[in-house]
Design a binder for these strands. Structure first.
Lengths: 207, 207
DNA sequence: ATATAATGCGAGCATTCGCTCGCTTTTCCT
DNA sequence: AGGAAAAGCGAGCGAATGCTCGCATTATAT
């Protein structure tokens, strides 16, 4: 039942040259995904753009899916880094300040590479990365939940899991839709209004 | 120009048989998208599952994308019907009652065919249906906005477009995530809690 | 310097896929 | 009944894709 192609690296890159090759391949994959779409993202094309031969590509990635999976992981790790840092920074702040910061960060995180974010979101189910993305969501949920728990005295009585689910969904949706709609032409003023309003939405809900 | 005897009603351009063929093709496409994924959704396979030949398929749909697009349109129309009806029904209700109804309907609409909804959402960019989906979003936005406008006296002072954007995003996200996470195993009790909480979120925000 | 391992190459195989075209069968209309 | 139009058929073409394999080049160790 080997329904999904293997996604683990075929071998580890040891020497500097091979590490550069791997990097070029990942870079090329992300670039093609964004600029030409998933359809045009063939292994031959990736190798061509990376300035590497197909043979070399297959020395490091056992399948096309493995390549996409690696790009997804890299991107997720980048975003998770931002989110984790924000939650640490926010740990001792009262709810209103904390929510404002988290909303701001959510929008920023989506703005890092909106087009890649979008393409990846579309391709995730097909690369067998569902498990990883669920882990990602669970981590966010856990972190936010534990913050809310520490601030329970400022809140009304609610089921913490439900409240976390509602808040994370709402914030994520505003960030996501904002970036999708406005693309890159988001004035700072508009962003500020959205942050204000989303903060109000969430803070008003929590207490 | 001989006159046609008025003894019989005019026949439709499409005969019953061909309408059945088109239907079978759409049904098969949706079915394969859900059960086997986009990768396996080939025109040959669609024809096979529909019990129709590839040649016949191409008599009605000029390309694979056209088929997927037709499925998307059908699905969107179904959902828009539900949403429109709900907004009519809600037009004379106060905000708290109206929001509750809309949240309920949003979750219901997502539950109609969650897996198809998901696959289609992923494939939209690929089928060049982005414009149609944006039209869909715009209609929802317009309808919700005009409801809010009619109830402005119950609300605090807000930019209507921003408020609409925030509310629609939040409600849609909760519905979407609820269905994605819980799949089909959603007890009525859990749904009720989520409706209550989301209603509180949105109503609290609006006033 | 030599041997061994690591890395890189790219033509081409096997397969899949979207789609066409010449033909047959069914339905409609007098 | 008979002819025309509508609907249906499916083998197969051409293009594209993922991937392999035998060989060439470069780095490392002795």
């Amino acid at each position: 039942m080997a329904r999904t192609p293997p996604t683990k690296p075929r071998k580890n890159a040891l020497q500097a040259r091979s590490r550069a090759t791997v990097d070029a391949l990942l870079e090329a994959t992300a670039r093609i995904l964004v600029r030409e779409g998933f359809e045009k993202t063939s292994t031959n094309r990736i190798a061509e753009v990376a300035g590497v031969s197909v043979g070399s590509l297959y020395q490091y990635f056992p399948s096309k899916e493995a390549l996409v999976a690696a790009v997804i992981e890299r991107h997720n790790e980048e975003i998770m880094g931002i989110v984790r840092a924000a939650l640490v920074e926010v740990a001792d702040l009262p709810i209103d300040k904390a929510v404002r910061k988290l909303v701001t960060v959510a929008i920023e995180a989506h703005r890092v590479n909106p087009k890649l974010h979008r393409v990846l979101a579309e391709q995730i189910p097909r690369t067998g990365q569902l498990a990883d993305v669920e882990a990602f969501n669970r981590e966010v949920h856990t972190l936010v939940r534990s913050y809310l728990e520490s601030r329970r005295k400022e809140m009304r009585k609610v089921d913490l899991d439900v409240a976390t689910f509602i808040c994370v969904s709402a914030i994520e949706a505003v960030a996501h839709n904002t970036v999708l709609n406005g693309a890159e032409m988001l004035s700072e003023k508009v962003v500020k209004v959205l942050v204000d309003e989303t903060t109000r939405l969430v803070v008003g809900y929590l207490r």
